Simulated assay, not measured.
Amino acid sequence: MYFTYIIRCKDDSLYTGYTTDIVRRMKEHESGINCKYSRVKGFKRLETYFIADSKSNAMKLEYYIKRLNRNKKLWIIKNPKEFLETLENKECYNIPYNE
């Protein structure tokens, strides 16, 4: 199981990543280890995450989200189910919402 996630940093910036262990990864962001961005910006909270069936799909989703502007990322955070519905037409994404 793989996770693609968006966190909010203390400076209100957003960071997107992927991992195999969401709990461990959030602890790393909190501690400022294994991520220069959250070490510098400070970890505030996990905003949302998505579960992927493969590393490839998790990485594709991470890449897709990272290319979006801030407003679109904020929309994803507020509307994760609707976001996934927009991906349904894209065969490369087979990602259920984390309910």
Rank of each mutant, 00 (worst) to 15 (best):
L61E: 09
L46H: 01
N69S: 12
K36Y: 12
L46T: 02
E28T: 08
E47Y: 03
D53Y: 13
L14P: 05
E30G: 05
N34M: 10
F50Q: 04
E62H: 04
S38I: 10
G32T: 00
R67C: 10
G17P: 00
C35M: 09
R67P: 09
S54N: 01
R70D: 13
K66D: 12
K41G: 04
I65A: 02
Y18A: 05
V40A: 08
T20H: 09
R70Y: 15
R67Y: 08
R39D: 11
K27G: 05
K44E: 11
V40H: 08
S38V: 11
T16Y: 04
K55V: 09
R39V: 03
Y64P: 07
L46K: 01
K60R: 13
G42C: 06
H29T: 06
R39K: 15
K55R: 15
K73Y: 04
T20I: 07
S56H: 12
T20L: 08
F43G: 00
S54H: 02
Y63G: 12
R45F: 06
T20V: 06
L46V: 04
Y63M: 10
E30W: 04
A52I: 08
F50D: 04
K27H: 13
K66S: 14
I33A: 06
M26G: 01
E62G: 01
Y37G: 05
C35W: 10
A58N: 01
K27F: 05
C35K: 11
I22F: 02
N57L: 08
T20F: 09
D21G: 07
M59C: 10
N57K: 13
I51D: 10
Y37V: 15
T19Q: 11
Y63W: 08
I33T: 15
T16S: 12
S13K: 15
N69F: 13
L61W: 04
V23E: 14
G32V: 00
D53S: 09
E28D: 13
E47T: 04
K66Q: 15
D53C: 08
S56I: 14
N34R: 14
K27M: 09
E62K: 11
K73S: 06
S31K: 08
K72T: 09
G17C: 03
I22V: 07
D53F: 12
Y64H: 14
L61Y: 02
G32D: 00
K44V: 04
I65W: 01
K55L: 15
T48D: 07
F43S: 01
E30R: 15
D21R: 12
V40M: 05
D11A: 03
Y63K: 14
E62R: 10
L46S: 00
K10M: 09
S31L: 10
I22W: 01
E47S: 09
K41R: 15
T20C: 06
L46G: 02
E30C: 02
S31P: 03
G32E: 00
L46N: 02
S31Q: 13
K10R: 15
I22D: 07
Y64K: 05
V40S: 07
K60E: 13
R45Y: 06
K44R: 13
